[in-house]
C-alpha cells in the first residue's frame, strides 16, 4: 500500500509540474513539485520510500527533460534518503522544522544535480545561488502547505461525517 502511495504521489507531482510549466511558463522554474513530493514521501513513510520515490521521480524527470539519465535520479534519491533519516532522527512535526527540511532537501538536490553536470562539463551555471534560494523557499512553502492539508483532511472528513450523522438524528426526532 505504501508503494502505491509513493508512486501515486510522484506521478501526480510529475503531471502537476508539467501542467504548471505549460500554464505558468517561466515562473514554473522556481518550484519543483516533484522534489516536494519526494520530500513529503520521505518524511511520511521513511528513508526506504524516500530513496525509491526519489529514484523514480528523478529518472522520470531526466527521461522527460532529455538530460543524462541518472543525474536527477541520484540527486533525488540522496535527497530522499537524507530527508528520511532526518524524519526518523528528529521530531519534524512543526511548521518551522518542516520548512527547514524542505529547504535543505532543495539545497542537497541542487548541489548534487548541478555539481554533477558541472563536473561532467555538460552544463554551465553563472550564479545559481539566487535561483536555488527562490526554489527552496517556494518548495518549503508548498511542502508545509501540503503537510498541513494532508493532516487537516482526515479531521475535516471526520467532522463532516459527525455533523452529517447529527443532522440525520435530528431529522428523525
Amino acid at each position: 500500500m505504501t508503494a502505491v502511495r509513493v508512486v501515486a504521489a510522484v506521478v501526480v507531482a510529475l503531471l502537476l509540474q508539467s501542467v504548471l510549466a505549460r500554464l505558468a511558463g517561466e515562473a514554473a522554474i522556481h518550484v519543483d513539485l516533484v522534489l516536494v513530493a519526494v520530500t513529503w514521501v520521505a518524511l511520511r513513510f521513511g528513508r526506504v520510500s524516500g530513496v525509491l520515490g526519489g529514484t523514480l521521480a528523478g529518472l522520470a524527470q531526466d527521461a522527460l527533460g532529455g538530460g543524462v539519465l541518472g543525474i536527477g535520479g541520484l540527486a533525488k534519491s540522496v535527497s530522499g534518503y537524507l530527508t528520511g533519516i532526518v524524519g526518523t532522527q528528529f521530531i519534524v512535526t512543526q511548521t518551522v522544522p518542516r520548512f527547514l527540511v524542505f529547504l535543505g532537501a532543495t539545497a542537497v538536490n541542487a548541489l548534487i544535480f548541478m555539481g554533477l553536470y558541472v563536473l561532467l562539463g555538460l552544463r554551465h551555471y553563472d550564479r545559481p545561488y539566487l535561483d536555488v534560494a527562490i526554489q527552496g523557499l517556494s518548495n518549503a512553502v508548498i511542502g508545509v502547505l501540503v503537510f498541513e492539508g494532508a493532516e487537516l483532511l482526515p479531521g475535516a472528513r471526520e467532522r463532516w461525517r459527525i455533523r452529517r450523522a447529527y443532522r440525520g438524528k435530528r431529522r428523525f426526532r
Partner: peptide, 15 residues
C-alpha cells in the same frame, strides 16, 4: 500541438 511543459524545473522542454 504542445500538450505539456517540462516535468522538471532543471530542464526546459515541451511535449
Amino acid at each position: 500541438e504542445v500538450v505539456a511543459g517540462s516535468a522538471s524545473p532543471d530542464f526546459r522542454s515541451i511535449t
